[in-house]
Every structure is written in C-alpha cells, then in structure tokens.
Amino acid sequence: MDTESRSPVVRLDDAVAVLGGFPALAGASIEIDHGEILLLRGPNGAGKTTLLRLCAGLVPLARGAGEVLGHDLSTERESIRQRVGLLGHHNGLYLDLTVGENVRFWGSTVGADDREIAGAIERMGVGDRLVDVTVRRLSAGQRRRTALACLVARRAELWLLDEPHAGLDATARDDIDAILRAAARAGATVVVASHELERAGALATRTVDVVAGQINPAAGEATP
C-alpha cells in the first residue's frame, strides 16, 4: 500500500478561506478517508460550498494547511483539480450535445478510451435510448445522471456534490443515492453538502456540522 492510499483523501488543519474579505472558512479541520460518504450539514452561509470549492482547488487556502489526494492545497491546486469532480447547482453539460457526446468529451480530456466511456454511460444508466438524445431534452434527473457519468469518465476520485438532490423527483433521488453508494464501493470518496438531512443522512457514512466556517463532528449521526 503506497503512502497516498494510506493517507486521508482530504486533510484540513485549521484551514482558512477568505471570500471577498470575509472568512468563509475560519479554522476548519477534518480528515476524510477513502470510500467515505461524508455529509456536510449546516445553515445557509455556514461555509459548506466554500469547503467543497476549497477541496476542489478552486478557492485558495489563506491560512492553515491542507492536502487533497496527497497534493498540497497551497501549492498544487491544478493537480488537485484534475482528480476531483465538483457538481454544484449546474451540471456542467453542453445542452446541444447528446448524452454520449458529453460523456465522450469529458472523458477524452483525461485520455479515457472508448471502453471507459461506454462503461461510465452504462453505470450511470444513461445508455440505450438516452445516449443519442440531446441533453436539452432530458429531465433534471437524467441530466444529473449524465453529469455523474461525466465524473466517472473523467476518473474523478473525490466527488464533491453540492445539493445533489435539489430539483429531482423521488425516483431520481433514489437513483442518485444508489449511484453514490456504488461509486463509494468502487473506491471513490464522496462529500455531499445538503439541506435534505433525512435523505442525505441515510446515504452518508459520516455526518459533520459546518457552523460559522468551522467543522464540528456530529456525534451519534454516523450510520453504518
């Protein structure tokens, strides 16, 4: 077992991230291990989205220390970006391209071959009759599954999801939960920020509270 696979996927130590002069994260510390599904819960403006964007290498670390997938958050943000997938309120899809064309494009940016791309499409359940449909014609749930197929094709090892259930019906939410559990079993690490505590709590293997830019363990919230 190499050093990277033994060390946590995410390690933050007193991390501070400043947005527009305001410390959106004010001394956050956490370790996230391989294969975890971690739920971040907290009120609006608590710093959940900033935490996700910090872990994606999009927000600079102003103070403290941090590593993601073995890369230093202060000096190796570009390397981090290539190995994580962040899915926010948008899906990052080209609406005039088909499902297959979208997944192929995103997979090709990391050199994924045809077999990997076809596998990603099948795993996320957007093959068969959907693969040649333009994204503009898909439902919200189908679009979200297509976006997740793009993450798989991109070989993202750390999935950072901001309100992944938002705007989806019950069936689509069940589909997303099943996909995330399967991704974690396959070795991905998943961090979810959600207001839907009942659903996301059932999905998560661990829950933490994000309050005023700091991370507190939510004792007794972990589910097997």
């Binding site: 994606a56 290498g57 999009l58 570009e78 390397s79 981090i80 970006r81 290539q82 994580v84 997938g85 962040l86 926010g88 309120h89 948008h90 899906n91 990052g92 899809l93 080209y94 609406l95 005039d96 995103w106 940016t109 994204v135 679009r143 991109r154």
Partner: peptide, 17 residues
C-alpha cells in the same frame, strides 16, 4: 453562451482542463 448555459466553462476550470 453554450459554455455558460449549464456551467460548462466553470466545469472545465474545475476539471483542470
């Protein structure tokens, strides 16, 4: 516009393209 419609330009930035 095609990049902004569903956040694709942001996604390319996130993906480190």
């Amino acid at each position: 516009a095609v990049e902004a419609e569903d956040g694709a330009l942001e996604a390319t930035r996130v993906a480190g393209v």
